[in-house]
Design a protein around this nucleic acid. Sequence first.
DNA 1: ATTGTAGCTTGCAAAAAGATAGTAACTTCT
DNA 2: AGAAGTTACTATCTTTTTGCAAGCTACAAT
Lengths: 166, 166
Amino acid sequence: MQPKLAPLTECPCARAVETVGEWWSILILRDALLRGLTRFDEFERSLGIAPNMLARRLKHLAESGLFERRLYSERPKRYEYVLTEKGRDFFPVVTALIGYANRHLAPEGASLLLAERGSGAPVIPAVVDAATLQPITVDNVDIIAGPRASAGMRERLATAARAKAN
Amino acid sequence: MQPKLAPLTECPCARAVETVGEWWSILILRDALLRGLTRFDEFERSLGIAPNMLARRLKHLAESGLFERRLYSERPKRYEYVLTEKGRDFFPVVTALIGYANRHLAPEGASLLLAERGSGAPVIPAVVDAATLQPITVDNVDIIAGPRASAGMRERLATAARAKAN
DNA sequence: ATTGTAGCTTGCAAAAAGATAGTAACTTCT
DNA sequence: AGAAGTTACTATCTTTTTGCAAGCTACAAT
């Protein structure tokens, strides 16, 4: 996973992929977010992941600021991994992914659903514009350069707009 | 990337990760969705990816039904990769990811934004419940077993609910 | 006839992932 | 007191995946 091209790392999508874009990271976050896991051995058992892999991923996620490595026992020294605000804010992405998978990747029916806390009413995730609450689809939304876009990025976005228009 | 544990592949999240959960797949989809790319060499140049990698990923994504490999020239035989409905529906996930990255991974400011087609009004992606249009957060949504959940899955979800409650 | 274009495939080295075993520092059970 | 966990890892080794460079096929254009 090398961010070779400069414009690649400039794209927010590529940045996200750098931080959480691998198999285990997303699955670890899923367990932390959805099941409230915090301990090394909880993740280990839940995922069936090799301990060296888990150690590496947790370290990376902690360094990226999604988990806080917190001492919960002085003697013996024991650490747990608690989601930060940045980590908890990843929840919507996970639910969007679950929504997608339930729609397209579960032909035999869903085995996991979302429900409103309290009422238990079913929740179907939808990605909308925060202002208008209109669903976001490939046909009604364009990408544009942000304030910090480089010249190269602006150039590529210009050609992108032309391509999408037809 | 092996789906070792059975309960792992039962989780929609794990399934999604199996299909699109790697570096290049998401970046390829990003370019197809956001910039409208379809040709092998367009992806190659845009991503700086090695051709064997690109061939493998495109093949996998085509087999997974996100792209259709379409002949666009008989002599010489030339193929392009066109997003299917299943592929285009991945767009919301990508925008959710972009939203997350712009919030947390771009301290110096965003270089890529979303805009409404036509009006050009800025679009901020939010993941909400399709019915109530309330934002989905880790604090107001639980996971519950779906109709097709296995016994093991139900068991794990039961302990999950308890863990999250505190 | 040579160059160029598009879409790959092959071979090989390097990097990453994964299984297994082991360690450190305790606590608890007998 | 000794043996057997528990928790959170690290170390070592094997397997798998990745990525680069090069080549290749089938054609079009010059």
